[in-house]
Amino acid sequence: MLSITPDTVALGAARKGVITAGFSPVADDARAINGTVGDITSADPRMTARNVNVYYGDKLAINNVSLDIGVNEVIAMIGPSGCGKSTFLRCLNRMNDTIDICRVEGEIRLDDQDIYDSGLDVVPLRAQVGMVFQKPNPFPKSIYDNVAYGPRIHGLTSNKNDLDEVVEQALLKAGLWDEVKDRLDEVGTGLSGGQQQRLCIARTIAVAPEVILMDEPCSALDPIATARIEELIDELREQYTIAIVTHSMQQAARVSQRTAYFHLGELVEVGKTDDIFTTPRHRLTEDYITGRFG
């Protein structure tokens, strides 16, 4: 079920060949600027993106990005603002469909399925690829109803007991259960910012997705709440595949196994997180990590 079609393998290999053919520890820009430095593939990929271009109207926002997202790994996407990392993330569960002028080219697969296939239905796709947003966005409903929303609309449970169970499990996994178990009827928007964001994560988990996309989930939170979320991400990794966009390099270093560095709509470098932060191979990556810009 996770096998890659021969085409994809060939394409990936070919691409890898091109890229790996001539890099030096610190690449000279002339050669590396059009291709991605590092290994874009994953040994056990859940999602594969190939040659993705995204346009907003006439403007090219993402240029020829290819990247695998592996099972049970956390992949962090970093880069200066406007580099396209969030846009790329939103492509992975077709949230860009909600923006009228946005157009996506290329191929993105979830397991075997091309998610931009014209016959594909976004509703089950989004049930499999959940998303957590930058600003905590709980619904103005009770905590219970927030978490139960997904299971209810998808008809995942058949009775109240099952639903209670799903809600409790989701809140437990999100590390929020102990704080809210006595006030499930209170409005979700009354929680603190960090709690709200964990509630949103619980809401996503309750649908039991395969992949969770997180778009700067901690940017609106204080350091303590951020630490809680980061812990949570680490725990969730065992059951889910997680792609996280972050502004903070420290956060990327703390939570992820692989890191992808985006710059001006291009994927500049991908690699094991430890390697990227200790021995970046592309000059742009190095400049960004050492704080020369960003």
Partner: peptide, 8 residues
């Protein structure tokens, strides 16, 4: 976004 992102 939150609702659509969950697959509603």
């Amino acid at each position: 976004d939150a609702s659509l992102g969950i697959g509603a």
